[in-house]
Amino acid sequence: MTTPRRPLRDNGLGLAFGALFLATLAGQSFAGQAQVNADRLTEGLPPVSWLEFVTSSTFGVDVMENWQSEYLQFFLYVFATVWLVQRGSPESKEVDRIGTGSDEDQLVGRHARPDSPRWAATGGWRTTVFSRSLGLLMGGIFLATWAASSITGWASFNSEQLMSHQDPVDWAGYLGQADFWNRTLQNWQSEMLAVGSMAVFAVHLRQRGSPESKPVGASQHDDTGETG
């Protein structure tokens, strides 16, 4: 029996996290403006307005450096979990199912069902692309936001260089600066830690009712890929 459709409930995750995203982004903008103005005060410079701050490279790089690492995390996780497994973890598939799976398992080509997406059934490049579309999108957004991070970071770095009476650098020069790699790697390391530790913690610990967890009574190491 199909559960009746109720838009708010059916889209609760997307709506709740969308609202939380907007609220926290707004909070970041006000906290960031206050921090920048405190720094400007000590330099004897006039404060910037909220609008000036949210359109500045300083705010842009703080946002982009976090976005790029989040999308890298999901891109790597989507691809890595095709080939890497964690016995007993609900974040992993079963250990004997490493790889991309058969067409029958994946319901593609002649194995597609009547309700399968059209590109799953058509074959050729469309099915090849659609079969990897989640990873491609995540990887694409990662590259776009990392590029945006490098550009906003470059602008912010040069603004700080000028404020401290030093020469600005070109974009290629910025990519060799510690500022760019410190911003990049400090975000990457936290994403790798969170993903790796979640995969392992979920072997041993439970969250009743969450699809990120196994059922509370599931076996520690024998039940892999089960969610509850």
Binding site: V48, E52, S159
Partner: peptide, 18 residues
């Protein structure tokens, strides 16, 4: 002339200003 955000540098012959 280099302008980055609200900061700028101008090079004249014989002087640099911020």
């Amino acid at each position: 002339v280099a302008v980055w955000g609200g900061e700028a540098q101008v090079r004249l012959a014989g002087d640099t200003l911020f």
